[in-house]
Protein backbone atom coordinates (compact mmCIF):
# COMPACT_ATOMS: atom_id res chain seq x y z
CA UNK A 1 0.00 0.00 0.00
CA UNK A 2 2.79 2.41 0.94
CA UNK A 3 4.42 1.90 -2.42
CA UNK A 4 1.59 3.96 -3.93
CA UNK A 5 2.28 6.92 -1.62
CA UNK A 6 5.34 8.23 -3.48
CA UNK A 7 3.63 8.27 -6.92
CA UNK A 8 0.54 9.81 -5.29
CA UNK A 9 2.54 12.62 -3.70
CA UNK A 10 4.64 13.32 -6.77
CA UNK A 11 1.64 12.97 -9.09
CA UNK A 12 -0.28 15.44 -6.93
CA UNK A 13 2.69 17.80 -7.09
CA UNK A 14 2.62 17.67 -10.92
CA UNK A 15 -1.15 18.27 -10.98
CA UNK A 16 -0.74 21.26 -8.67
CA UNK A 17 2.19 22.56 -10.71
CA UNK A 18 0.34 22.31 -14.03
CA UNK A 19 -2.71 24.00 -12.48
CA UNK A 20 -0.88 26.88 -10.79
CA UNK A 21 1.33 27.51 -13.83
CA UNK A 22 -1.79 27.90 -15.95
CA UNK A 23 -2.95 30.54 -13.46
CA UNK A 24 0.39 32.33 -13.01
CA UNK A 25 1.25 32.36 -16.72
CA UNK A 26 -2.11 32.55 -18.47
CA UNK A 27 -4.47 33.61 -15.68
CA UNK A 28 -6.73 30.61 -16.20
CA UNK A 29 -8.43 28.09 -13.94
CA UNK A 30 -7.35 24.52 -14.73
CA UNK A 31 -10.84 23.06 -14.55
CA UNK A 32 -11.10 20.31 -17.11
CA UNK A 33 -14.89 20.29 -17.47
CA UNK A 34 -14.91 24.06 -17.96
CA UNK A 35 -12.01 23.96 -20.42
CA UNK A 36 -13.68 21.21 -22.46
CA UNK A 37 -16.98 23.04 -22.45
CA UNK A 38 -15.35 26.31 -23.51
CA UNK A 39 -13.34 24.54 -26.23
CA UNK A 40 -16.51 23.06 -27.68
CA UNK A 41 -19.08 25.77 -27.25
CA UNK A 42 -18.03 29.16 -26.04
CA UNK A 43 -15.28 30.93 -27.82
CA UNK A 44 -14.29 34.20 -26.22
CA UNK A 45 -14.40 37.32 -28.41
CA UNK A 46 -10.80 38.12 -27.39
CA UNK A 47 -9.53 34.76 -28.61
CA UNK A 48 -10.48 34.45 -32.25
CA UNK A 49 -7.11 33.77 -33.86
CA UNK A 50 -6.29 30.15 -34.67
CA UNK A 51 -7.17 27.29 -32.38
CA UNK A 52 -8.50 28.22 -28.93
CA UNK A 53 -6.01 27.82 -26.04
CA UNK A 54 -8.34 25.28 -24.44
CA UNK A 55 -7.60 22.79 -27.23
CA UNK A 56 -3.87 23.12 -26.49
CA UNK A 57 -4.41 22.26 -22.84
CA UNK A 58 -6.63 19.29 -23.76
CA UNK A 59 -4.00 18.28 -26.33
CA UNK A 60 -1.43 18.33 -23.53
CA UNK A 61 -3.59 15.95 -21.52
CA UNK A 62 -3.84 13.64 -24.51
CA UNK A 63 -0.08 13.81 -25.14
CA UNK A 64 0.59 12.78 -21.56
CA UNK A 65 -1.80 9.86 -22.03
CA UNK A 66 -0.02 8.82 -25.22
CA UNK A 67 3.58 9.28 -24.20
CA UNK A 68 3.98 9.19 -20.44
CA UNK A 69 2.65 5.70 -19.63
CA UNK A 70 5.86 3.82 -20.35
CA UNK A 71 8.31 6.22 -18.65
CA UNK A 72 6.13 6.48 -15.53
CA UNK A 73 5.97 2.71 -15.38
CA UNK A 74 9.74 2.44 -15.72
CA UNK A 75 10.61 5.14 -13.17
CA UNK A 76 7.88 4.80 -10.56
CA UNK A 77 6.80 1.22 -11.17
CA UNK A 78 3.15 2.25 -11.37
CA UNK A 79 0.61 -0.14 -12.88
CA UNK A 80 -0.38 0.71 -16.44
CA UNK A 81 -4.00 1.77 -16.79
CA UNK A 82 -6.11 -0.68 -18.75
CA UNK A 83 -9.58 0.68 -19.34
CA UNK A 84 -10.69 -2.28 -21.47
CA UNK A 85 -9.81 -4.73 -18.67
CA UNK A 86 -12.33 -3.04 -16.38
CA UNK A 87 -15.11 -4.28 -18.67
CA UNK A 88 -17.61 -1.64 -17.62
CA UNK A 89 -20.99 -2.28 -19.28
CA UNK A 90 -22.11 0.05 -22.04
CA UNK A 91 -25.24 1.34 -20.27
CA UNK A 92 -23.14 2.07 -17.17
CA UNK A 93 -20.58 4.02 -19.25
CA UNK A 94 -23.31 6.04 -20.94
CA UNK A 95 -25.22 6.80 -17.75
CA UNK A 96 -22.12 7.76 -15.77
CA UNK A 97 -20.74 9.84 -18.65
CA UNK A 98 -24.02 11.72 -18.95
CA UNK A 99 -24.15 12.34 -15.20
CA UNK A 100 -20.55 13.55 -15.08
CA UNK A 101 -21.05 15.92 -18.04
CA UNK A 102 -24.40 17.20 -16.78
CA UNK A 103 -23.30 17.53 -13.15
CA UNK A 104 -20.06 19.36 -13.91
CA UNK A 105 -21.84 21.83 -16.17
CA UNK A 106 -24.67 22.62 -13.74
CA UNK A 107 -22.30 22.54 -10.77
CA UNK A 108 -19.71 24.75 -12.49
CA UNK A 109 -16.80 22.36 -12.14
CA UNK A 110 -15.29 18.97 -11.45
CA UNK A 111 -12.50 17.44 -9.38
CA UNK A 112 -9.92 19.79 -10.89
CA UNK A 113 -11.86 23.06 -11.04
CA UNK A 114 -13.46 22.79 -7.61
CA UNK A 115 -11.25 20.24 -5.82
CA UNK A 116 -7.90 21.76 -6.67
CA UNK A 117 -8.19 25.23 -8.19
CA UNK A 118 -11.30 26.19 -6.20
CA UNK A 119 -10.15 24.95 -2.82
CA UNK A 120 -6.71 26.31 -3.75
CA UNK A 121 -8.34 29.76 -3.93
CA UNK A 122 -10.26 29.10 -0.70
CA UNK A 123 -13.53 29.52 -2.61
CA UNK A 124 -16.50 28.63 -0.37
CA UNK A 125 -18.47 27.48 -3.43
CA UNK A 126 -15.75 25.02 -4.36
CA UNK A 127 -15.36 23.73 -0.80
CA UNK A 128 -19.09 22.99 -0.71
CA UNK A 129 -19.09 21.41 -4.20
CA UNK A 130 -16.08 19.22 -3.35
CA UNK A 131 -17.64 18.01 -0.09
CA UNK A 132 -20.87 17.20 -1.95
CA UNK A 133 -19.33 15.26 -4.84
CA UNK A 134 -16.91 13.41 -2.57
CA UNK A 135 -19.75 12.43 -0.23
CA UNK A 136 -22.06 11.31 -3.04
CA UNK A 137 -19.14 9.57 -4.80
CA UNK A 138 -18.29 7.61 -1.65
CA UNK A 139 -21.91 6.54 -1.07
CA UNK A 140 -22.32 5.57 -4.73
CA UNK A 141 -19.09 3.54 -4.77
CA UNK A 142 -20.11 1.69 -1.59
CA UNK A 143 -23.58 0.89 -2.93
CA UNK A 144 -22.53 -0.17 -6.43
CA UNK A 145 -19.29 -2.03 -5.75
Amino acid sequence: MFSSFVPALFGGFLIGLGAILLMVLNGRIAGISGILSAALWSREPSDTKGIAWQWYFLGGLLISGLLMGAPLQAIFDVQPIDIAALSISMPMLLVSGLLVGLGCTIGSGCTSGHGICGIGRLSPRSVVATLVFMFVGVITAIVFH
Binding site: F13, G18, G59, G60, S64, M68, S112
Partner: peptide
Protein backbone atom coordinates in the same frame (compact mmCIF):
# COMPACT_ATOMS: atom_id res chain seq x y z
CA UNK B 1 -1.38 25.83 -22.05
CA UNK B 2 -0.05 22.73 -23.81
CA UNK B 3 2.80 22.39 -21.31
CA UNK B 4 0.42 22.78 -18.36
CA UNK B 5 -1.80 20.12 -19.91
CA UNK B 6 1.13 17.72 -20.17
CA UNK B 7 2.16 18.35 -16.54
CA UNK B 8 -1.41 18.00 -15.32
CA UNK B 9 -2.07 14.83 -17.34
CA UNK B 10 1.21 13.24 -16.28
CA UNK B 11 0.28 13.99 -12.68
CA UNK B 12 -3.12 12.34 -13.16
CA UNK B 13 -1.49 9.21 -14.56
CA UNK B 14 1.28 9.00 -11.99
Amino acid sequence: ALLCGVLFGTGLML
